[in-house]
Amino acid sequence: MTPSDREAERSVNQPGSNPTPKIRLRGLTKSFGAKRVLDGVDLDVRAGHSMVLLGGSGSGKSVTIKCILGLITPDEGLIEVDGQDIAKLSRRDRAALRDRIGMLFQNGALFDSLPVWENVCFKLLAQKRITRAAARDKAAEVLAQVGLAASVGDLSPAELSGGMQKRVALARAVAAQPDIIFFDEPTTGLDPIMGAVIDGLIVDCVERLGATAFSITHDMASARRIGDDAAMIHKGKIVWTGSAENLGETGNAMVDQFARGEREGPIQMELRK
């Protein structure tokens, strides 16, 4: 799917219309032992839009993303991408779906044994869409898009600061021009300025590719910057969905408490006294 195709898809996916969502979750459940982490998650992600899933630590955000990516198998429920139930996809179709997906992990998850340029072009090399010689140039081009010099490509991930690692991880996530990109806590562990820089880069990359973005975060400033739509998950259930613009004044007591970081409210931390 080219960026122009994605723009066309985006135009018919405005609020009010009723197209097939890019990602559709219905009744998703997942337990680890006695702990029920997802308890019937229902969520739609519109094509060409950026959805931000909010929630506290341990609320099930990362497990939701891992279920969509096929890294964890849900106990029950439906996951559709472009109207296709991913549980029914053949191995080949599932691989083809993964080819269209990019993922930015919370801690970057860069491969220590490879230089930065090889990390950035890993997917292109794995898919044999590019030669190793061409990959160096491609890596330099993508690194420039996230504000890094071409010389960074020859460094090892261990030689980079946290912010630079995040930018390299973002470059890796977008290098193969995916049409769905997942961001797991993109600003966690970064100072506010670097967080804003990363958010800006995410918005730029997603807009340039015309991709659908699905982010999970508990950073409200980040959620407002990168999200079109937002949803909140609490105790494994989606308790609210709406626009990311007015977070903090949604009228939903849980979301507003979370957005304002208030101690008192319907969300009670389970602290042992």
Partner: peptide, 20 residues
């Protein structure tokens, strides 16, 4: 140690998402 570190730092999952 290498594969274990890759496992606990999500690098093994990253491989899957990178079509490998």
């Amino acid at each position: 140690a290498e594969i274990g570190t890759m496992r606990v730092t999500d690098q093994v999952d990253a491989l899957t998402t990178l079509s490998t």
